[in-house]
């Protein structure tokens, strides 16, 4: 086994500083803010997620929904075209249905609020997929297919017959780096931080710009919050 080093240690100081979780938090409740005004539906966050986590073809942990008639197509509201994007990955619900229903505790909630899975324990019953109101879980139905067989990313692949989803890039959190999708959003539409720290950028944004929960009525208490689009100033 060649002597390898953590990709984080190999970053240049500038890059490393860019990705550092600021401010670091001792007992965090990690959350994310998505600014739908800034989101341009580019899928960079979804693609880098696939790359970072070695997600096979046909499976996506993160996807970008178009609020419109079709992919990147507007709806026409009384003679007026409108369109916006809603990136969607695991919401890391504080009251997570998937955790409740998992018969073997393979899906569990970590102290830092991350809803995590234990691929070695999962029996593949897919009850969590039934329970998740956000449709963000995906199952390893068969042998994974990859582009020309290319294995990518920084974590182990999950076994056939088990379920997987966004892990909030826990492997990066371990090293004080923001999740990959947050790093790679070119529009600055994804902000990561500690929801329990009232002064963190995420907390402030949620306060100042009325961050919303997706399907709040389901009572799942998501830790991903969405900032609504700004009001337009017609000519």
């Amino acid at each position: 086994m060649p002597d390898r080093r953590s990709p984080v240690d190999l970053l240049s100081p500038a890059s490393r500083a860019y990705g550092a979780i600021e401010p670091p938090s001792s007992s965090p409740r990690w959350g994310m803010v998505v600014d739908t005004e800034r989101c341009i539906g580019c899928w960079s966050c979804a693609v880098v997620c696939k790359s970072e986590n070695n997600v096979p073809l046909g499976m996506w942990w993160n996807r970008i929904l178009t609020e419109g008639e079709g992919l990147d197509l507007p709806t026409t509201e009384h003679g007026r075209e409108e369109m916006s994007w809603t990136p969607l990955a695991c919401q890391h619900c504080d009251n997570a249905p998937c955790v409740k229903v998992c018969p073997v505790q393979a899906t569990y909630r970590r102290e830092d609020g991350v809803v995590m899975m234990d691929s070695a324990r999962c029996i593949g019953c897919r009850y969590c997929m039934i329970a998740c109101p956000y449709g963000v879980r995906t199952f390893n139905w068969g042998a994974p297919a990859r582009p020309n067989g290319l294995e990518t990313g920084m974590v182990e692949a999950r076994p056939v017959g088990t379920v997987e989803k966004c892990t909030l890039c826990v492997h990066r959190l371990e090293e004080g780096q923001v999740p990959s999708c947050v790093w790679s959003c070119p529009a600055g539409a994804r902000i990561f931080g500690d929801l329990d720290d009232p002064d963190s950028r995420v907390s402030r944004l949620v306060r100042d710009r009325q961050g919303e929960m997706l399907l709040e009525e389901k009572g799942t208490l998501p830790k991903v919050r969405y900032l609504p689009p700004r009001r337009r100033r017609e000519l």
Binding site: R5, S6, V8, L10, D118, V155, R172
Partner: peptide, 15 residues
């Protein structure tokens, strides 16, 4: 019930 901890990223040869 204990779960195996999620370790840091897998190592790479070069960046």
């Amino acid at each position: 019930r204990d779960h195996p901890a999620v370790a840091a990223s897998e190592g790479v040869d070069r960046v």
